[in-house]
Amino acid sequence: MSGSEPRLRVEGRACVLRGDDIDTDRIIPARFMRVVTFDGLGEHLFEDDRSQAKGDHPIDDERFAGAEILIVGRNFGCGSSREHAPQALMRRGFHAFVGASFAEIFFGNCVSLGLPCATLSEAALAEVMDSVELEPTQEIVLDVASRTLTHRGGTIPVEIPDGAHTQLVEGTWNATAVLLEAGEAIDATAARLPYVQGF
């Protein structure tokens, strides 16, 4: 099984979530992880932030309803390795992330789910955020293949690291199938490691 399809582009409305260092405990508070499946996590996305904002949170903002792309600040997804965070975002309808930077484990978890995370300069990001907030109904296109983002203001380049880019474009982001292809080379590596052999 390959289990993954190429992710060439994501298009649709966007939602702007301002702020840096938004951690995975805020994306999905730990108490909602007492589950054995990822089903239903979308309901609790940003639950505590939203309840404290009393409706004044971008996720609850009517203007961003149905958004496919989440636009964030710096170091988004820092903290815990919980895949529950990108799972909750995906189950809420977000299929791509655009921001100044992403925490490493969060970025990798997104790639594993076929969700592109694209970065752009702070200046360009500020422009995109303003553009979407001014006109939330506009269609945004993240073209993964050509590494560009198109919004009302024009088409601008974004960064997606080569490895992730290849996995998304070629549809090899579900790593299990790719890793299994190594076959006996896995056993050969294990056999070379002294500790696997009991020294």
Partner: peptide, 19 residues
């Protein structure tokens, strides 16, 4: 630390794709 998809990778292959 790894996410759940990577836990699946390790269970099935004892490997990870890592930069």
């Amino acid at each position: 630390g790894i996410g759940t998809s990577q836990v699946r990778d390790v269970l099935a292959t004892q490997c990870l794709a890592m930069a």
